[in-house]
Simulated assay, not measured.
Amino acid sequence: MSDSAAERLAENFAAGDFADRYARLFGEQAVTDSTLIELVLPEIAEDGAVVPVTIRSELDGIDRLYLLADKNPTPLVAEFELAPLVALQLTARIKLAESCRVTLVARRDGQLLRCSRWVNVMRGGCGSG
């Protein structure tokens, strides 16, 4: 990994404010709410340390995904780079510090598409205690 790529990752995944991280990632680019990308999360997560998430879309040409949690100490939870010809079906586990809105932004042909879901977290997964 080049120094510039490592620096970019370190900056993107740094602790900070959600609004600041969102602005740094997307700047002045238009982000459109879309039902063509799907973010599946439980309504209630018993343990914020292991929250299952599924991302799906039938759109072609999605080359990057950003997953953010507005209350996490590190707002950018995950970033995925995809081959544009890949059918999007991705499942992972994420950490959530507390109940919050999780936002997915997908980049497709230079456009940014967004969807979000609220998750109630019973026990936070990002704390030190």
Rank of each mutant, 00 (worst) to 15 (best):
E7H: 04
E28M: 03
L41M: 09
L67Y: 01
M1G: 15
G124W: 08
A83M: 12
S2I: 01
T35M: 03
A106N: 01
A5R: 09
S4C: 03
E28N: 11
E79N: 08
A45P: 07
C100S: 13
L76V: 06
E79C: 11
Y66Q: 04
V102W: 06
F13E: 06
M122N: 11
P84F: 10
E81H: 13
F26L: 04
S4R: 08
L59N: 05
I55D: 02
C100T: 10
A10R: 13
L112M: 08
D47I: 01
V53P: 07
M122H: 08
V40C: 01
S116A: 15
A97Q: 14
R123G: 07
A10P: 05
V102E: 01
A92Y: 07
A10M: 01
W118P: 00
A15D: 11
V86Q: 15
A78Q: 13
S34E: 12
V50I: 09
R117W: 01
E7W: 01
A87G: 14
E38V: 12
A6G: 02
F80Y: 15
V121W: 10
A5V: 12
D109S: 14
I37E: 12
R114W: 02
A83T: 13
A30V: 13
D3Q: 14
G110C: 09
S34D: 08
L85Y: 12
L82T: 07
E98Y: 02
C115Q: 11
V119G: 04
R24I: 00
P42L: 00
S116D: 15
V119R: 01
S116E: 15
F13D: 02
R108T: 08
L96E: 03
A106V: 06
N72A: 12
E98M: 04
V86L: 15
A69T: 06
D17T: 07
R56V: 03
K71E: 15
R64F: 00
V105F: 02
C100M: 14
A15N: 11
A15K: 12
R8C: 04
